[in-house]
Nucleic acid binder design. Sequence first.
DNA 1: CCCTATGTTCCCAA
DNA 2: CTTGGGAACATAGG
Length: 254
Amino acid sequence: MPELPEVETLKRQLQEVIIGQQVRAVKVFDPKLSVAERFPKGKVLQIGRRGKILEFIFEDGQRVWLSLRMTGRLLWGNEVSEHRRLTLVFSEGNLHLIDPRRFAALSFPQKELAPLGVNPLEGAPPSFFEGLRRYRRPIKSFLMDQRFVAGIGNIYASEILYAAQIHPLRPLSRLSQEEWDQIMMSAREILTEAIRYRGTTISDWRDLYGRPGEYQKRLKVYGREGEPCPRCGTSIRRIMVAGRGTYFCPRCQN
DNA sequence: CCCTATGTTCCCAA
DNA sequence: CTTGGGAACATAGG
């Protein structure tokens, strides 16, 4: 599913296409998304992103949050493809929500709730790491916890820890400040690079125009079990961390 | 039939 | 309170 770089790609493309346009009609094809009937019919003022959540901001101040979950995608255009769950009819075109597994969710936030973690593109404030000493959970599961760090998912967590040369099972409480800083720096570099390549297409991800991303060609460890580490040649390993497939180099990452 | 899958949430147990 | 495991959601592919 879309992580930060994929959602950011959609956000930027939507800004080019629907800012200033008015939602004329909403067609709902999945009863799970019947809440979409309440979609504001006004003019879209801005598109935002909070971690992996896409935010539509309307002229009158109303907001809609879209969480794409595992297989959700947005498609601009006329062609009716498989797995269409929702269509927003704009003055100058149609925006379709495509979602094979039907996990995507819409919400209409009443106020500022759902405290989100730090933005890994900006980095954490200097004091952030100080408050984390008590957590002994593996660094990888921490990086993916949206309450602490917003936007990192399963693919980029493995890639970030590989770049930072930190073992995914290392307890947070046993990281030094320098190692934490290194992880945050790697996160920024990798996510920024992934945005530049319009995200990672392993199976479902496509951008607003249906094109696959390019970052999958640059993945160093994710999905590469048994292949040689690009740094030292050791065979990449796969383990389960918090129930998710996790890839790392047993020699480079400690 | 088995396992896996870019996510989130909830229940339960240690 | 912390953490992880498992299940659930629902569908497709190897």
